[in-house]
Simulated scan of single mutants.
Amino acid sequence: MNYKTAIVWVAACAVLILLIVGAVGGTMVKMPGKTHKGPLPPLTPEEKQLADRLHEHVLVLAGQIGERNVAHYHALQDAAQYVGDRLREYGLTVGEQSELVEGRTVVNLEGVLRGSRSPEEVVVIGAHYDSAPGTPGANDNATGVAALLELARRFAAVQPERTLRFVAFTNEEPPYFQGKAMGSMIYARRCRERGENIVAMLSLETMGCYYDKAGSQRYPAPLDRFYPDTGDFIAFVGNVKSRDIVHRAIGTFRKTTRFPSQGVAAPERLPGIGWSDQWSFWQLGYPGIMITDTAPFRYPHYHQPSDTPDKIDYGKLSRVVAGLDRVVGELISN
């Protein structure tokens, strides 16, 4: 590369960076409403009870059962049994989608509430119940499963206008992540084969870590230019095509819930944007978002043996789940 070519190349890169930063500063990060600032209100009696139930779920999954994946197959089965039993206990009929992976049968679990007004429009609330190799997976992702179960408990007696599905996915973690054997990919592929109209998918992923200290939050560039460095918020994350769902969900959350929140609708190739089950739905053309504490960008125990139930802030997780109750309620109404 000669000198003049190098200058042109550097200038082109600079322009590209400026365009990316400008785009991020516009449609990608601009969200409706305002995040909550200041002290949090006291937990209500209902939120305290919710916190206790969330704690119980995490203790069973990450404490009693522990590491759960194909390599720890009996634990993976125990986790599936626990999730299925709770969904049935709450009054949902539970279906199983089985798949043979490395000679082992793994299952996605699905509880369905058929819509009364627009049953052909489907809202999916999902969370993966497996854990990464070498970790009991309290935050990743027993917290997401606990949130899924408590939302299912809340809506089991509700007649939604749109069809509402609660789905617990297997095999989100490596070595199946973003592969054909990823549980959510198997599920989303079947939805597309059936011609189903999924209007929104919410992936509940790693939701229990919060810090009030500056410097506790990191981001992939260029997002670090636009967001706070204190990890006290819940994040609503989507790809560009899912921007409307990001806006609708965080808009409802901010209107109804006094808890910090941030949102982004960015290209899925940006690190972290596609790091959960919503990615599978994007590949099949469905809109989806991730609800997360941002996992490795905040949580020091991510994918570590130290990801244990004592690391979770159950009070703040309860506040988030209570807010998501209102988000789901808005999404299932058309």
Rank of each mutant, 00 (worst) to 15 (best):
D85W: 13
Y82N: 09
G84S: 15
Q49D: 11
D78S: 14
N69T: 09
L43S: 06
A80N: 11
L50N: 03
H55K: 15
E67H: 04
D78F: 10
G84T: 13
A80V: 09
Q77R: 14
A71E: 15
R53C: 00
H74Q: 15
E47M: 08
G84P: 11
L54Q: 07
G66W: 03
Q49E: 12
I65Y: 05
L61G: 01
Y73W: 06
L61W: 01
Q49R: 12
L76W: 10
H72L: 10
R68K: 07
V60F: 06
V60S: 02
H74K: 15
A62S: 11
L54H: 03
L76T: 08
E56C: 00
E67I: 06
G66H: 03
L54M: 04
G63M: 05
K48D: 02
A79N: 07
E56L: 05
D85Q: 15
Q64M: 12
R53M: 04
V58C: 06
A75F: 06
Q49C: 00
Y73Q: 06
K48G: 00
V83P: 10
L59W: 08
L76S: 08
V70E: 13
A79P: 08
G63K: 06
T44A: 05
K48F: 00
N69K: 08
I65S: 05
H72Q: 14
A80H: 11
G84V: 11
R86V: 14
G66F: 05
L43Q: 05
N69P: 05
Q49K: 12
H55E: 13
L50S: 03
L43A: 07
V70Y: 09
P45A: 01
E46N: 03
E47P: 00
A62I: 04
D78I: 09
R68E: 02
V60A: 05
G84W: 07
Q81T: 15
E67Q: 10
L50V: 01
